Simulated scan of single mutants.
Amino acid sequence: MAYESVSGLPQGATLAGSNLSSRGGTQTQTRSASGMGDTWFTVRYSATHARDGRIGIHPYAKVKIATASHSAGLGTGQNDYEAGLGFDARAGYYTFPFAHIGYRLVGKPANSNLQNIATYDFGASYVLPRSQANIITAMFSGSQSEQKGYAGPADLIVAWNHNINPQGSGFQLYFDKGLSNGSASYGIGLGGQIVF
């Protein structure tokens, strides 16, 4: 669950995460909006692990619970469902390249023309040698557009994770630079995760 604050949102437009899912016609006026974002739940299974020269393969499933306000333009007001595969590897002692590819069934509000999309990302994480609890990640993240005829989101993300236990529970600080008209110009965020 996240708290979102956006500026420069076109009048009548709706967000899906930090990306535009609908644009509200051809109006040029913009506005600001703040509030609770959508909530994502992810389940991942490690079919193989990245060790001894092998690639790790991780099927996953995600569900978006529509907790963001549709009337404020912070979400579609509909749940989304995604399934896909994650891959990771080990390059030396401290560097871990990864990639994900998925397919998302997009919840469609009434009178909308949203479409299901393919999602993808790739990048690498680097574990700081003197502190196994600190990890720097750089990645490219993108997807098809939920609206036909528009650019899909494309983002460059840099994140710092600090783990508070060996399982990987901890918090994350990230910076997001949008690379297409389907993405926010930039974003910053603070999050956390609990690993069982």
Rank of each mutant, 00 (worst) to 15 (best):
Q78I: 05
D80Q: 06
R90Y: 03
Q78P: 06
D88S: 01
H100T: 12
F87C: 08
F87V: 09
Y94E: 01
A83I: 15
A83R: 05
S69K: 09
G75K: 03
T95M: 09
K62R: 14
S69C: 07
G107C: 09
F96E: 04
H58V: 00
F87Y: 14
Y60S: 03
Y94K: 01
R104N: 12
G73Y: 13
A99S: 07
I101P: 09
L105H: 15
Y60W: 11
G102D: 06
P97F: 03
A61C: 03
F87T: 08
Y94M: 10
F87L: 15
I101K: 14
R104Q: 15
L105N: 15
Y93T: 11
I55V: 15
G77K: 12
P97L: 01
I55F: 04
S71T: 15
E82N: 02
H100R: 13
F96T: 07
R90H: 11
G73I: 08
Y94G: 00
I101A: 15
R104P: 04
A72S: 15
I57T: 07
G56S: 06
H100I: 02
I57G: 00
Y93F: 08
I55S: 09
A91N: 03
R104I: 02
G92M: 01
G86C: 05
G102W: 09
A89L: 07
G75D: 00
G102Q: 13
I65S: 13
T76E: 08
V63A: 15
P59A: 02
A61D: 10
L85W: 13
G102F: 12
K64W: 02
S71K: 15
R90T: 12
Y60E: 06
H58A: 02
Y81W: 10
G73T: 09
F96Q: 03
A72H: 13
T95S: 04
V106W: 00
H100A: 06
I57A: 06
N79T: 12
G107E: 03
Y60I: 03
T76I: 12
A68T: 14
Y93I: 05
G92C: 04
Y81L: 08
R54A: 13
S71V: 04
R90I: 10
R90C: 06
E82P: 02
L74I: 11
A99V: 05
V63D: 09
G53F: 07
S69W: 14
Y103S: 13
A91F: 14
T95N: 10
Q78Y: 09
A66T: 11
Y103E: 08
S69G: 09
